[in-house]
């Protein structure tokens, strides 16, 4: 249902596209909330599907009447380009691409947030007073209900997964999927972080390469492929998408690897060039408030920021929100990493 609505919205917006002013970055969709004639309109640029954030936005607008909100959806690369290169005017930028958000903040495109807003945030969920996480999302693997037919053991770690794939090459050949880091910023971020944390990443990459793993641009496509039976295992799927989809269409299980499960932080920043920073800060403050977090987790299905989750599931590793994220972004480093990746994937 949600997907259809999103697709419909995308279609409408695609049609409306040509009347929009010329710009150097591409958007995927946009939506407008609140009274159409509102004097103050908050411009939000985000990588999060509109439908995920719709209840949150509507919840906020209900509390602050007289304000409209223009929501623009773009890919993480385009979000970065819009702010860093095109000088587009947005009031709030929300993105799951932690590395690009970090680069925006590091390079001075973010505006300091008020100290009282950040005082209660855990250290790992913010960087300086520039960048703050609004949701934490585990990066999981999902297994089709048919993946383990015949009593195969449930893989709980990467080691288990490697063993499973290695022991049953015929079953899994061509039916394992993961992000294509060359195409997807998120996929590259996950791969680089995993490679940083553990050597099993490269062993897994080689195993998957040997099994002719299929590469995807997005979590949604992987989930769809699993549901349609094309894939038995999808590796590195955003848990929130999996969970959201799992609610409506069972047919797979979500596994959080217990050696470590990367946890992506969906971060928000107020750009330096924001037209209405006060309202922007109010919106971010709402996202961080108990009410906003409640809406994010309950209505949007994105896990709220919860330090307790790390105590409960000690294998959850929040991706470190610090300039360490900048190193893999380096052009030459990236080229080197992707060359290694290609070598692992393309095996004779």
């Amino acid at each position: 249902m949600r997907n259809i609505r999103a697709a419909l919205a995308g279609l409408i917006l695609a049609l409306a596209g040509p009347v929009m002013p010329a710009r150097g970055y591409e958007i995927e969709a946009s939506a407008h909330f609140g009274p159409p004639d509102a004097a103050r309109r908050l411009a939000v640029l985000s990588t999060t599907d509109i439908d995920f954030l719709r209840p949150v936005i509507e919840g906020w607008l209900a509390r602050t009447p007289g304000i409209g909100l223009d929501y623009t959806l773009a890919s993480s690369q385009e979000v970065y380009r819009a702010i860093a290169e095109e000088g587009a005017v947005f009031d709030v930028v929300i993105s799951s691409a932690m590395d690009l958000q970090m680069k925006l903040a590091n390079d001075g495109f973010a505006r300091p947030l008020p100290a009282e807003m950040l005082r209660t945030r855990p250290d790992w969920s913010r960087w300086r007073n520039l960048l703050v996480a609004v949701a934490q999302e585990p990066v999981t693997m999902i297994l089709s209900d048919h993946a383990l037919d015949g009593g195969l053991p449930m893989p709980h770690t990467r080691r288990d997964l490697i063993a499973l794939l290695r022991d049953h090459p015929d079953r899994f050949r061509g039916r394992v999927g993961t992000y294509d880091p060359e195409v997807s910023g998120a996929g590259y971020l996950f791969a680089a972080q995993e490679a940083r944390l553990s050597d099993t990443f490269w062993r897994l990459a080689e195993v998957m390469g040997r099994l002719d793993a299929r590469l995807f641009c997005c979590s949604g496509d992987m989930i769809a492929a699993v549901r349609q039976g094309d894939l038995l295992i999808a590796y590195n799927v955003l848990g929130s998408y999996a969970a959201a989809d799992g609610r409506t269409a069972p047919g797979f299980v979500v596994v959080e690897p217990e050696d470590f499960t990367l946890t992506l932080l969906r971060t928000a920043l107020v750009p330096r060039g924001a037209a209405d920073p006060t309202t922007a800060e109010a919106f971010v403050a709402f996202l961080l408030s108990p009410g906003g977090q409640q809406l994010i987790s309950a209505a949007a299905g994105l896990p709220a920021i919860d330090a307790g989750a790390f105590a409960l599931k000690p294998y959850l590793r929040p991706i470190r929100l610090d300039p360490g994220l900048l190193a893999p972004l380096d052009r030459i480093s990236r080229q080197g990493f992707l060359a290694e990746w290609r070598a692992a994937m393309d095996q004779p």
């Binding site: 900048l326 190193a327 080197g336």
Partner: peptide, 9 residues
């Protein structure tokens, strides 16, 4: 170039 994230961190 092999920039080390750890160094940056």
């Amino acid at each position: 170039v092999d920039l080390s994230p750890v160094t940056f961190s």
